[in-house]
């Protein structure tokens, strides 16, 4: 199976003050596949995900060593503006977080800051991406209401539409279904399946079954270390490391 690498991590070390969160991670995330980062809580999944789009920079006292290449560009190159790296990646947070503005303005925010002013084209983009996220039917009559009025499940789809509207190549999801009810979670999963032919998706999850349902590629972290990674069918069915075996069989969690 030949596949291209989209994100390449080389010897990544991250610590918060004195707390080491990631040790020497080296890893390649395949293009146009769903990669699931799994592992018990506190093992560094969020840290790894946020290092991809330089959101880690915001944390207090964070120290980053190592390299990450996105499309062959080292994102830690000194002097590099992180905005164009971030623009390449849509982020779905653990708890959906709309911007403090209307539903329409949430989706239009990205295109607007990147220079689109034409009202009709904006409307078209908003409609298209709300449809992509399966939200259009529910909100088309109340586009100008506050986004915070939506249910949590709808908010997460709004966040997805908002992220897609900046035309990213990568979608990062940090346990994006963990705050949602089962029906909403299922919808998000279905949308991910639909999107994976066009986007590289990196999904942090601590739900093993979700990883089984969605992932093409698995990254298993434990205590800040990369224990095992590989194609999902291999890692999930025949884990090489004892720790992975134990985790998958529910011995450690």
């Amino acid at each position: 199976m030949h596949q291209q690498t989209h994100i390449e991590v080389k010897n990544l070390n991250v610590s918060y003050g004195d707390v080491k969160a990631l040790h020497n991670i080296t890893l390649a995330i395949p293009d146009k596949k769903i990669t699931a980062i799994i592992g018990p809580s506190g093992c560094g999944k969020t840290t790894l995900l946020k290092s991809f789009n330089r959101l880690l920079d915001l944390e207090e006292g964070v120290k980053i060593k190592g390299e990450i290449f996105v499309d062959k560009e080292n994102i830690f190159t000194p002097g590099l503006e992180p905005t164009h790296i971030r623009k390449k990646m849509g982020l779905l947070a653990q708890k959906p977080c709309p911007l403090p503005m209307s539903i329409f303005d949430n989706v239009a925010f990205g295109p607007r800051i990147h220079g689109l002013k034409n009202k009709r084209r904006l409307y078209g983009i908003v409609r298209y991406h709300l449809k992509q996220a399966g939200l259009w039917k529910e909100v088309k009559d109340r586009l100008y209401e506050p986004a915070s009025k939506l249910s949590i499940g709808q908010q997460q789809r709004l966040c997805l539409a908002r992220g897609l509207a900046v035309k990213p190549e990568i979608i990062l999801g940090d346990e994006p279904t963990s705050a949602l009810d089962p029906a909403s979670s299922k919808r998000i999963e279905e949308i991910f399946k639909m999107l994976k032919s066009r986007y590289t998706i990196v999904l942090v999850t601590h739900i093993l079954r979700q990883a089984k349902r969605l992932a093409d590629y698995i990254v298993f972290l434990y205590n800040g270390e990369l224990v095992e990674h590989g194609p999902a069918d291999v890692v999930l069915a025949h884990p090489q490391q004892p720790l992975t075996q134990e985790y998958i069989n529910g011995v450690v969690s």
Partner: peptide, 20 residues
């Protein structure tokens, strides 16, 4: 999370502060 959401859309710090 609001700040992170804005930044992750490729907003600059200024846009994040003054528009969000």
């Amino acid at each position: 999370e609001i700040t992170q959401a804005a930044l992750s859309l490729g907003a600059t710090t200024g846009e994040t502060a003054w528009k969000v």
